[in-house]
Amino acid sequence: MDLEDQGIIKGTVDEHGRENLMVVLGSPDAESAEIYAETVTTGDPTYAGPLAGVSLGLQVYHILEDEVKAEIDPVIYEQQIGMMEMVLDKEAISKSVKKIREG
């Protein structure tokens, strides 16, 4: 993940605390979704950015996961996400993020 963005995420977490915070990703493939998910849970896997060795332990989901979709107003979901649900590899992305979330 971009190092500056890691800094922004860290700042936001410091400001709001970890308890009530969660992450929803929009990455286009399973590999990048996994890196992102890892970065906000166990820390930056490349050990390069502000989140290196920082275990935020945030609950992380991807917007394409079925359990996320179930929570969202279907009309808005269709408008905002519908097309991407069709073109991205939903299954692989969901699997990789779930794997990180469930440790």
């Binding site: 963005d5 995420i9 936001t12 977490v13 709001h16 009530n20 915070l21 969660m22 992450v23 929803v24 990703l25 929009g26 990455s27 286009p28 493939d29 990048s32 992102y36 906000v40 945030l58 917007i63 394409l64 905002q80 996400i81 991407m84 991205l88």
Partner: peptide, 17 residues
């Protein structure tokens, strides 16, 4: 819940999330 929406230009943008 407070949510961090981390999107991507060629995936789902943050604002859509």
């Amino acid at each position: 819940k407070k949510v961090l929406c981390i999107g991507e230009r060629d995936g789902v943008p943050g604002s859509a999330i």
